[in-house]
Write a protein that binds this DNA or RNA. Structure first.
Lengths: 342, 342
DNA sequence: AAGAAGAGTGTAAGCGCTTACAATTTTGGC
DNA sequence: GCCAAAATTGTAAGCGCTTACACTCTTCTT
């Protein structure tokens, strides 16, 4: 097999009988190219199977053809789903997906923001998934020249899609309250994963609001920090069981934490809803199985939606609309881990 | 804020009082650079915070600084874990990670192999996770000039790390057999996910070998194709329940499929181990909770190990060792979904 | 101590693309 | 039909890096 030689723009130019420059313009759908030329170029390119070298394009000031996804972790159910959905959109639009997982390490985030210029050399845009950014970091990113979109972030100067986290938490908490529970604990991801899960604070807010609606207040002792993972939920619930008086109901701010809580309970011979009612947020595929009551959110949809917004920005750089913020619906799903408090 | 200007190799050259060429060599630790020059360059580069433009480097024939991870899906527990572990290794070694999820679509794989030249333009190496490759594809990849490593693949001409899938399946099946079960079904991922889970056929082999050890044979009716997902396992088990005589024990070739099987059973008022004993492979974090007997495998370790092998190849391109194949240990974990058959 | 071999360094030619800007062709108004 | 304006196309100069090759010093030989 002959070592295949890269097909360059030059080849396309020769075959189409036009100049390199015209080919370049035609390929990128720039104005000032006659339809005839456009057709010839498209033809030649197709015939040769030409694909521009992203390195060369980038170097010359064009685009890189890749988009970075920055997520707090790639393993949690939510992020894995969102990443895959976004990756599909990017791939279908011809972009490579560069995955950056913060893995709960602030050092990774620092490295990225310390070299944003470097990142902007390598990707055209960034999709942020629930990344907790300082105002300064938001400003840096906004000024970086990179296209940006996000999932689950609020008050950011770029396109965002998410759910109304406060509402979701309110729905979950209100469900508990409506069932007659008034002694509630919350397992909140707030401030645990070093760079993560921005949503947690909104969810905590929703929890508080629901309580307030019922003329109750949040007892700080019953706000348990918990990683948004199975193990995090388990540890948090263990702590609750060991060191504090048991509430009658627990709201975990994601299903995985709820799973962990359920585990911890079982380890202590407790079960839901017998001893404690438990509710989560997500509607993880295992939740049905475990009978976990929860507030369902569309996950892949969020990732795909945000990815599409980002791709649109990149492809229509000329139409600078205002950043948009989209909320997808959530829905309470009552199952077996919650019941009326006598 | 002044728009930051990129620091180029030129700047480093000027500051260090050397030529661009020498700087380039020094930065890449090539031979024929005096220690004095090396030091001066390192100094200047550090002072300026210089980082080479990967686009320019690539264009000129150097490396891209990125590595692709190709996985059948990014959402399954196994792959999410492995991807994150590998991404960490790559990131720490200064590589970007390009994620490519096949999503069970052969079209994606075709696209990649149809444009391997393009891929090799954009990445230095490829980490394959359990991708089912034809001989032709293996040959293409081996000839592509890309560095390659893999997880869970066999008889490939590059570094591989995995578990002994046949053994793992044998362990699981033998456990069932040892418990007195002789009427077994297997939920096998073989040939379902279009491009995936190569491991399934080895696991099926292990299943067969265990049966053979007990002088039993595999009844084709009891080999159920099943996606290696919760939903896949659920469907497969439903099929088993609906259309075939129920065996006394089921071996699911991954824990997620086992979860699905458990779900399907519950939907039919059945439970493990009462009606059917169930065992999986993986030791997923939920398995403990569900009491699922399983064969544990180290997942993150496999991803990290393979990633390290790949990085080593890339960084010591001059030392062309033989491709190595590493097996990590698996271990039977007996829990509550399996019991002695009376 | 002269010349060859080698170590260290510099020169310059691209890599494949984008993009001012210049050159050419087309279009339209009168 | 003639000329300016607009539309189209081409020329050429890089983008920041690597690398073949030429060149200048050092070291050893003998």
């Amino acid at each position: 097999m002959v070592k295949a030689q890269r097909v360059t723009i030059q080849d396309v130019a020769v075959l189409s009988g036009l100049s390199i420059c015209t080919v370049s313009r035609a390929l990128r759908n720039l104005p000032n190219v006659s339809e005839k030329a456009q057709a010839k170029v498209a033809d030649a390119a197709a015939k040769l199977g030409y694909k521009a070298s992203s390195a060369a394009a980038r170097l010359a000031g064009g685009s890189t053809g890749s988009i970075a996804i920055i997520a707090p972790t790639a393993t949690a159910w939510f992020f894995a789903q969102a990443v895959e959905a976004a990756e599909e959109v990017f791939g279908d639009s011809g972009f490579d997906t560069v995955l950056i997982s913060l893995r709960g390490k602030s050092s990774v985030k620092q490295k990225i923001f310390g070299d944003l210029l470097g990142l902007s050399q390598r990707v055209d845009g960034v999709l942020l998934l629930n990344v907790d950014l300082s105002e300064y970091e938001v400003a840096l990113l906004a000024a970086s020249g990179l296209a940006v979109a996000s999932v689950g972030m609020t008050s950011v100067p770029w396109d965002n899609v998410g759910i109304d986290d406060e509402l979701a938490a309110w729905q979950a908490t209100s469900h508990l309250l409506g069932l007659g529970h008034w002694d509630l604990a919350v397992l909140s991801g707030r401030e645990t994963l070093e760079n993560s899960v921005l949503t947690s604070s909104d969810r905590l807010k929703g929890f508080g609001r629901a309580l307030k609606d019922h003329h109750l207040t949040v007892h700080p002792d019953l706000v348990i920090n918990s990683d948004s993972t199975i193990d995090g939920g388990r540890k948090a619930m263990n702590e609750l069981i060991a060191h504090r008086s048991l509430p009658t109901a627990v709201f975990a701010d994601c299903d995985e934490a709820a799973f962990g809580a359920l585990m911890a309970m079982r380890e202590h011979g407790l079960s839901a809803p017998k001893n404690v009612s438990v509710i989560g947020i997500d509607d993880h595929p295992m939740s049905w199985f475990l009978g976990l009551s929860t507030v369902a959110q569309p996950v892949a949809d969020q990732g795909a939606f945000a990815a599409n917004l980002l791709v649109d920005r990149l492809q229509n750089a000329d139409a600078p609309n205002e950043p948009s913020n989209h909320f997808l619906d959530t829905k309470l799903i009552e199952r077996k881990t919650t019941r009326r408090q006598r």
